[in-house]
Design a binder for these strands. Structure first.
Lengths: 108, 108
DNA sequence: GGTTTATATTAGTGAATACTTAAATCAGGG
DNA sequence: CCCTGATTTAAGTATTCACTAATATAAACC
């Protein structure tokens, strides 16, 4: 599943926003999303599965709970794809400045 | 239609990549896409319509031809959404450095 | 062990959407 | 004008996918 397929869904984007503030248990995420989007816990769990399977989130057990956290790798891929369009809105920088500023490094 | 809905489709992403190199007539885009994705010219035209309607591309007539160009505004929106995740992969910068480097400005 | 709490999975359904073929629009040249 | 080339639009279809309801799994607590 391509990164943009994952990000297409507003519920998944919102979940990632929540996880960007720090890790959260499945139930904590579900509580917010159920309220904001009026969908069931099962639906949220399915979205979390998509995020897991596509590498956007990692999970760690804590007793009966599952603690989710962002994995930024696929987001960095999206950021890299945007590179070719940056010149449309960013001022011109010399190469070194750009390198330092953006801290972009090749991923292994 | 949300920016991510538009970018979800690989054909549309490829079209944007082509337009990133400079403007192209509909037919020029179609020739490449037809070859790479094995779809009809009509399908390409429909994708171009989505890009127009969603603000990712602008059109200008040139006789019977339609010249397409990138409009980066919605891409910049995507870039802005990614901001909250940048700290996961970018080195820490002080505020001024960041401001200068990224040239991020509020869009009106 | 049985109940409760937390979470995931399965099966089924409806809506969205990307495609095809066919037809419509429209500019330019003979 | 009619014809050709360039492009868009329309109608119909098949697939994808996000949802619900119901069920399964599994830890925690009594």
């Amino acid at each position: 599943m391509h990164a943009f397929d994952v990000l297409r869904d507003p519920v998944r984007r919102r979940i990632l926003e929540l996880l960007a503030d720090g890790e959260h248990a499945s139930g904590e995420v579900a509580a917010v999303i159920e309220r904001e989007f009026a969908i069931t816990q099962a639906a949220v769990s399915q979205h979390l599965k998509v995020l897991r399977d596509s590498g956007f989130a990692t999970v760690r057990p804590d007793g009966a709970r599952r603690i989710y956290a962002v994995d930024a790798d696929p987001l960095q891929d999206v950021d890299a794809w945007l590179d070719r369009f940056r010149r449309f809105w960013e001022p011109k920088l010399d190469a070194l400045e750009t390198e330092i500023a953006r801290g972009r490094r090749k991923r292994t």
